[in-house]
Amino acid sequence: MNKDSIFVAKLSDLSSARGKYFIDYQMRPALAFRDERGLPVLISAKCTHLGCTVGQDLDGQGRILCPCHISYFDIKTGQPTPGSPAKSPLPHLGWALKDEQGNLLVAQDPEGRREGAVDPSQAEKSLLFIVKRFS
């Protein structure tokens, strides 16, 4: 897992209100946020309706907007708001946090299963990666 990963951002650079765009292993756009516990939330930014790239700003209800045909997605669940043209949820991406020496601290697969733990002081300095394969 250590070998096959791509750097996304320093965890401390992420925000809970404005996502950071990056490109995933399938060359699709994705967004990285930080949740209220300080952990990363990685979600696909390719709208499930017709493939536009969704916006990076969260509204007051924790949703991101696809400006093409006005679909709102809840970033926690990925689900579109009822009535949106998009019908299926934006998938979450798995991630890994490593320390500055490259040692794995904690990893989470796309289904939300987590391995390892990180304390807040470590987290501030940790680096966020996406991982090609979770075994």
Binding site: P29, A45, C52, T53, V54, G55, Q56, C66, P67
Partner: peptide, 8 residues
Amino acid sequence: LGSTPEGI
């Protein structure tokens, strides 16, 4: 690396 702009 950016959102699709409005008005497409």
